[in-house]
Amino acid sequence: MKKQYDVIIVGAGASGIGLGILLKAMHCEFCILEKERIGASFFNWPDDMRFITPSFPCQGFGQTDLNAVAPKTSPAYTLNVEHPSGVDYAEYLELLHRHFNLPVMTGIEVKTVNKLENGGFTIETSSGTLQSSFVIWAAGQFHYPNLQPFPGAELGIHSSLVDSWDAIQGDDLMIIGGFESGMNAAYQLCKRGKQVTVIAKTSTWEMEESDPSRSLSPYTFSLIENLPEPELLHLVGHAQVTGIKWSSEKYQIMTEGGAHFSTRYRPIIATGFTGSTQLIQHLFSYGEHGEPLVDAYDESIKTPGLFLAGPELRHDDHIFCFIYKFRQRYPIIAEAIGEALNLDMSIIEEYRKQNFYLDDLSSCGERCQC
């Protein structure tokens, strides 16, 4: 294994593979480090979890599959499914790895990243120390759930830690959190004939937002709307959970308004993720909502040369948690690195033509008119 690279990418998920394809086309000297296997987070999805963004092969008509991480590729074409499972999508990423012959090193755990005085980085790994001029942090979110959103949360089970909804015991269940994870969990459990109460700070099922990062996606909304037995689902909105405790042989769930709920079964926590930047938080500054702060090139404002890619990316009020959003920032990162290293950047124009390039964020907040 080499010890010195121009760029080291941490994580071989959607962003790691997507950026790797772009950097290879630019003839960059780089490697991708992955502590498990390619697409590891997707392998850990619950069995019934599916992409909420649809995949559709329409490249010939000037559009790219919403779940593709590189132009002229399509999970729908490769997998022949519209809403891939986690295992499906990992297969797509592995195919890209082989097709583009990407330098991915699996079984390499990154222990820490440190900035050098000369401007480069040292990356301490389970297989030794590496150095690079730039680091792209693409380790994602799913492996890093928010396990302590409120006191007593350890009494519940985070939705990302559920292997299969068939394994959930009980017939009267409580879910805390009303965004995609929580509502998908509610659907899966109601489909299995269980009584489910969703307790949520935000009533996502009532919101009218064109941005699916702020309200339920049409896919999830349609699942909830078409439950075979809708009476099994009880939705409680505008309820901020403040804690869980075990009392009178039941889990007691308290809320800010004084209301409380009880259940004999472990509550399901669907309150999101802290994100992988917590592993190198000394290299980031954070905003008021805990978001890593980056500049216009997705470069850490605290540590020049360190770039953030993937669902943890934020720009002011703009949320990049879907693949079709954060993939448009790959060439922005690649351009910044390419200019510094004097690389061949002719591929960037192809990314522009394929709608894989978003540098003007002023239109991101525009709502649909109808």
Rank of each mutant, 00 (worst) to 15 (best):
Y187A: 13
E180H: 15
A186E: 02
D163A: 07
A167L: 12
D172I: 10
K191H: 12
D171L: 03
C190W: 11
D163G: 06
S181A: 13
W165M: 07
A186L: 05
L161H: 07
A186T: 06
D172Q: 14
G182H: 07
D166E: 15
W165L: 07
I168C: 03
S181M: 09
V162C: 04
S160M: 10
L189N: 04
Q169N: 10
L161D: 03
A167Q: 15
G170R: 08
Q188Y: 01
S164E: 09
C190I: 12
M174R: 03
L161K: 06
G177H: 11
V162R: 00
I176T: 09
C190F: 14
C190Q: 13
A167H: 12
M183I: 11
V162T: 08
D172Y: 07
I168E: 00
S181Q: 10
I175N: 01
A167P: 00
L173C: 03
W165A: 05
L189K: 03
Q169E: 14
I168R: 02
Q188K: 04
Y187M: 04
L189R: 02
D163K: 13
I168A: 01
Y187G: 04
I175R: 02
M174V: 13
I176D: 02
M174W: 00
A185M: 03
D171Y: 07
D172A: 11
Q169A: 13
S181V: 02
V162D: 01
A186R: 08
A167S: 15
G170L: 06
M174H: 08
A167T: 14
K191S: 14
K191Q: 15
E180I: 09
D166C: 12
Q169K: 11
V162F: 01
L189Q: 07
G178Y: 00
D166N: 15
F179A: 13
D166T: 12
G178S: 03
D172T: 06
Y187D: 12
E180N: 09
V162K: 02
S164R: 13
Q188C: 01
G177M: 14
D166R: 14
Q188T: 00
N184Y: 13
Y187E: 10
D166M: 14
S181C: 05
M174L: 11
L189D: 05
G177S: 10
S181R: 07
S164N: 14
A186Y: 04
Q188S: 01
G182E: 09
D172G: 05
D163E: 10
V162L: 09
G170A: 05
Y187C: 11
Y187T: 12
A167F: 10
G182M: 08
A186I: 09
L189S: 05
A186H: 02
I175T: 08
C190N: 13
I175D: 03
I168V: 13
D171C: 07
M183W: 09
I175L: 09
D163M: 03
E180F: 10
N184L: 15
D171P: 02
M183A: 13
L189H: 03
I168Y: 02
Q169D: 12
I175Y: 04
F179K: 15
D171A: 06
D172P: 05
S160C: 11
I176A: 07
Y187I: 09
L161S: 05
W165Y: 15
A185I: 03
G170F: 05
S164Y: 10
I168D: 00
G182N: 11
Y187Q: 12
Q169W: 01
K191I: 09
D171T: 08
G177C: 13
W165I: 05
C190T: 15
M183Y: 10
Y187L: 03
